[in-house]
């Protein structure tokens, strides 16, 4: 029994968070696991574009509607597993990209946010208990915003995607200390878009970089992914795990997916021993 919630977060935009979240979800679903992928980036929704090839009918209900109490959980989820030929289920909870919906989210009160986080927890319990989902992956908005903090609070594990940019690392250091440590959440850092010129692909160089970053950030580094021009240039509608399964980006992400699974196994064993 897996049943874990993973939040994919970053301290700023453009780190590759959505590419990581969508492909991680597809990797698990290709393996036969049942996955739910929720777009919690309500200010800049993107999953509706990424999965546009697999969404056959007009979206009837958005995740916004569920959080507003206007529909049931199952109405806000779209199964795209058949469209992408996945072995397991891949359910999508999409954020509404209409400007009016984004404006509405921006005007929500703090009282609404209290209800929203409770609804998010209730959605996760429906996914695990009634829909046989193994992993719920949350694609969040960058930085400290209600949607991203709600995602962190409701997750079991957070994967923070970072690029090795010094300014970003400073922001990340603060975010990890003030947000993740405050909530005592299990957190790992994934370093993405590392330029090949830094030669981190050599194993000794990689270890050196990991050591330095772990010392600075005081959180484990789950993996390093080099910057691939073709990944950056790929169409928004391209799901690499399905379209280019042999791409080195995917190989790296598969290793990370396995590490995340084994971390989860270790947690479960620890929990059994504690009882």
């Amino acid at each position: 029994m897996r049943k874990k919630v993973m939040a994919i977060h970053s301290s700023r935009g453009g780190t590759g968070k959505t590419v990581i979240a969508t492909n991680l979800a597809a990797i698990y679903a290709l393996k036969g696991l049942n996955v739910a992928l929720l777009d919690l980036d309500f200010r800049a929704p993107s999953l509706v574009d990424v999965f546009s090839k697999g969404i056959k009918e007009p979206v009837g209900h958005w995740l916004n509607d569920f959080l507003d109490g206007r529909c049931k959980a199952e109405q806000a989820l779209i199964d795209v597993s058949e469209a992408y030929g996945l072995k397991g289920k891949l359910l999508l909870g999409l954020a509404n990209p209409a400007v009016e919906a984004i404006r509405s989210i921006m005007e929500k009160s703090r009282t609404w946010e209290v209800t929203a986080v409770k609804r998010l927890f209730s959605l996760q319990s429906t996914l695990f208990e009634d829909m046989d989902i193994d992993y719920c992956i949350l694609d969040t908005s960058p930085g400290v915003q209600y949607a991203s903090v709600n995602a962190v609070v409701s997750s079991d594990l957070s994967v923070v995607v970072a690029t090795p940019d010094s300014l970003e690392l400073k922001g990340l250091e603060n975010m990890l200390a003030e947000l993740y440590d405050a909530f005592s959440k299990r957190t790992v850092v994934l370093v993405n878009k590392v330029f090949p010129e830094t030669r981190v692909l050599l194993s000794d160089k990689q270890e050196n970089l990991i050591d330095r970053m772990e010392k600075l950030l005081k959180h484990p580094i789950i993996g390093i992914i080099p910057c691939y021009c073709d990944v950056l240039q790929a169409k928004r509608t391209s799901l690499l795990a399905v379209d280019k399964p042999y791409h080195p980006f995917l190989r790296k992400l598969e290793e990370i997916a396995e590490k995340l699974e084994s971390m989860e196994e270790a947690d479960r064993e620890e929990s059994v021993l504690a009882h």
């Binding site: 703090r110 009282t111 946010e113 209290v114 927890f121 209600y146 609070v153 909530f183 005592s184």
Partner: peptide, 21 residues
């Protein structure tokens, strides 16, 4: 809300977080 959780002392924050779930 989740933001005001950050202003609580860690001991109380842990209790409050369980009640969201």
């Amino acid at each position: 809300d989740v933001m005001s959780l950050l202003s609580l002392p860690p001991s109380l924050r842990k209790t409050a977080m369980v009640l969201y779930k």
